[in-house]
């Protein structure tokens, strides 16, 4: 009587026998791995995610601060001009209160 082991051996060998010797297709290897340059690979840029919004916020702060500083400088210069010529106030400074009903 044929055992299960024998039947298994015969069946697997018969299946394997369907592949003829020397019938393997040519091997297609991928491109050669890059040669190491001795440098450590670059660390992942963890800061890249939050740097853009931070830079945008810093730009807004710089613009606002610059505007305020410029405003103060201009108004300082206007006070100085007003102080040196009494009675010659800036036209806008004189006009604004008068325009309100």
């Amino acid at each position: 009587m044929t055992t299960t082991e024998d039947r298994l051996r015969e069946a697997t060998r018969a299946a394997a026998g369907t592949v003829a010797q020397g019938s393997a297709p040519p091997l297609a290897l991928p491109d050669p791995p890059r040669r190491a340059t001795g440098r450590r690979p670059a660390a992942p840029r963890r800061w890249a995610g939050w740097l853009t919004p931070l830079a945008a916020a810093a730009s807004v702060v710089a613009v606002v601060a610059g505007s305020l500083a410029a405003g103060q400088l201009l108004s300082g210069a206007a006070h100085q001009r007003g102080g040196s010529h009494p009675g010659a106030g800036t036209p806008s400074a004189a006009a604004v209160p008068m325009a309100i009903p």
Binding site: T12, A15, A16, V19, A20, S23, A24, L27
Partner: peptide
């Protein structure tokens, strides 16, 4: 070894 391994795959 390719043929032997292909045979294993076919089994």
């Amino acid at each position: 070894h390719a043929v032997g391994l292909i045979r294993l795959g076919v089994v």
